[in-house]
């Protein structure tokens, strides 16, 4: 068990290393010089050299990468003019464009993205499981077209189209809601939810379709499984069978998917964030890409990778916990 865990962790670290190396190489080879950008207009060659040294760009690509890895573990200092900028561990780099450590920038944006992802995921799972389990029961077969429609929509509608439609309907036509403007949960929970409800719905339209389909399929399959039949033979009430047995079986694939979706939403709901003007990680990426703010781009991609890898591991554990056939040993 411990051996397996260690292997998993080692594998995850390896994956992240490979990812960082690829991304680093990609941007190092990009035909744009980040030092020139940072130095700004009226930049003299001497000042450019200073800036380059301060950013650590005067070293070879490999050395730069090595310093980057060191910084992750021990933190890092960047000389900049008269004072030194300290970037505490885990240092993902320093954004000279914004004069802040990348980790600080990410930490700043993560609450927004997390709010978006968690809310959207909760809503999607609730709607998905609800609609899916109703449709999975023979009595509610008439709901099938509804779920089918939902599934089709999930495949056929890009999130920015849903977003646009929602904005048009609720903010422009009906004027029930103000144009979304992120308010932190700690500032005002009610406003937080009010401003996020449209983005949540937009994402849920896309996500809940898959969940509904999986639930229905899983339920249909589980109702035919041996353990359900056994339970029936023992005379357990039908409702209890449904809740404790069949649904549990149906939820297994859903758990993995939910964990993975949550992870990728945290960092890659770029379109939703853009559509609704939410200052999350995705917006940070788009901005950084436009300004060729290399450390931030690398940081966002690594964060995404990290979340995905962690979600993978968590999903495995949940899988074991929820599947009646898999026992944790």
């Amino acid at each position: 068990m411990i051996g397996l865990l260690l292997r998993r962790v080692a594998g995850a670290v390896l994956v992240l290393l490979a990812l960082s190396a690829i991304v680093y190489a990609l941007f190092y080879l990009a035909p744009r010089d980040p030092a020139v950008l940072t130095c700004g207009k009226g930049c003299t060659p001497e000042r450019l050299a200073d800036v380059r040294a301060a950013m650590g760009l005067d070293e070879s690509a490999l050395t730069q990468y090595w310093h980057f890895l060191e910084g992750l573990v021990t933190g890092r200092d960047y000389p900049a003019g008269p004072d030194v900028r300290h970037c505490p561990a885990p240092c993902l780099g320093y954004s000279f464009e914004t004069d802040q450590p990348v980790t600080a920038l990410l930490a700043d944006r993560l609450p927004v993205s997390a709010s978006l992802a968690l809310g959207a995921e909760t809503l999607s799972v609730a709607v998905g499981i609800g609609a899916g389990s109703l449709a999975g029961l023979r009595r509610f077969r008439f709901l099938d077209p509804l779920v089918n429609g939902l599934v089709l929509a999930g495949y056929a509608v890009p999130v920015f189209l849903v977003g646009l439609f929602l904005l048009l309907l609720f903010c422009v036509r009906l004027q029930w809601l103000p144009f979304p403007q992120y308010v932190a949960f700690t500032t005002d929970p009610l406003q937080w939810a009010q401003n996020l409800i449209l983005p949540w719905i937009a994402l849920a339209v896309i996500l809940s379709a898959t969940y509904a389909r999986l639930t229905r399929a899983g339920l249909e399959q589980a109702l035919g499984e041996d353990y359900v039949r056994t339970a029936r033979a023992y005379g357990f009430p039908e409702r209890r069978i449904l809740r404790s047995r069949a649904l549990r079986g149906a939820l297994v694939p859903l758990v993995t998917l939910t964990a993975m979706d949550l992870a990728s939403l945290m960092a890659s709901a770029v379109l939703t964030e853009t559509m609704f003007g939410l200052p999350g990680v995705g917006q940070l990426l788009v901005g950084a890409v436009n300004q060729i703010d290399l450390p931030v781009v690398v940081g966002v991609i690594l964060l995404t990778g990290f979340l995905v890898v962690v979600a993978n591991a968590v999903a495995d554990l949940l899988y074991a916990a929820v599947d009646p056939r898999v026992q944790l040993t």
Partner: peptide, 11 residues
């Protein structure tokens, strides 16, 4: 041309 480098290139 990228707006952040535009003046550098044309200047």
């Amino acid at each position: 041309i990228d707006s952040s480098t535009y003046r550098d290139v044309t200047g």
